Structure formats: C-alpha cells, structure tokens
Computed example of a mutant assay.
Amino acid sequence: MTQAPNWQKSTFSGGAEGNACVEIADLRTRIAIRDSKEPARGALSFPTLAFTTFISSLKADVR
C-alpha cells in the first residue's frame, strides 16, 4: 500500500487564503512540488539532493 504524500505549504504563502504558493512533499528519495492553486494538475519531482542544493543556493543568494 502506498501512502499519499503529505503536502506542505510554504510559511511565506501569500494571500488571505494562503493559496498563492507552491506546496512540497517529501517522498523520501525525491521532493515533489505542485501549484497550490491547481493541485490536481500534477507535480514535478526532483532527487532530494538536487532539490536541497537548489534551495541552499537560493538562500545563499538572498540579499
């Protein structure tokens, strides 16, 4: 039996409804990303290391 992903919204979600953002789900070996406004349209997934490297790069570039 496969368990459904646990989708989480960013703490930086915009709008009163908190739906102007992306959601992520940890799939163990991959990280899935989807649009919170259109969750049924599908998701992209990336290897965990690639995703965490990408996020670290974004954080390092914030000025």
Rank of each mutant, 00 (worst) to 15 (best):
E23D: 12
K37S: 07
R28I: 00
A43R: 03
G18V: 10
G14P: 09
E38N: 15
K37G: 08
P5R: 00
A43E: 11
S10R: 11
F12D: 12
K9T: 13
D26W: 02
A40I: 05
R28G: 04
P47A: 15
D35Y: 12
P47L: 04
D26C: 05
T11W: 05
P5A: 03
A32Y: 02
E38L: 14
F12P: 07
L27K: 02
I31H: 02
W7V: 02
G18K: 12
R28H: 09
G14S: 13
L27M: 11
V22S: 08
G14M: 13
I31G: 05
I33N: 07
I24K: 02
A43W: 10
F46V: 07
W7D: 06
T11P: 11
N19V: 01
A25I: 00
I24N: 06
Q3E: 15
R30A: 01
G15P: 01
T29Q: 14
R41P: 07
E23Q: 13
A25D: 02
A20I: 07
G18W: 10
I31A: 00
I33Q: 02
R28D: 08
P5N: 00
N19G: 03
N19R: 06
G14H: 11
S13T: 12
I31Y: 00
N19Q: 13
F12A: 15
P39N: 00
R41Q: 15
K37I: 13
G15T: 08
R30F: 01
E38M: 15
A25Y: 01
C21I: 02
M1E: 09
R28V: 03
S36C: 15
L27C: 04
F12K: 15
A16S: 06
I33S: 09
E17V: 09
A16M: 03
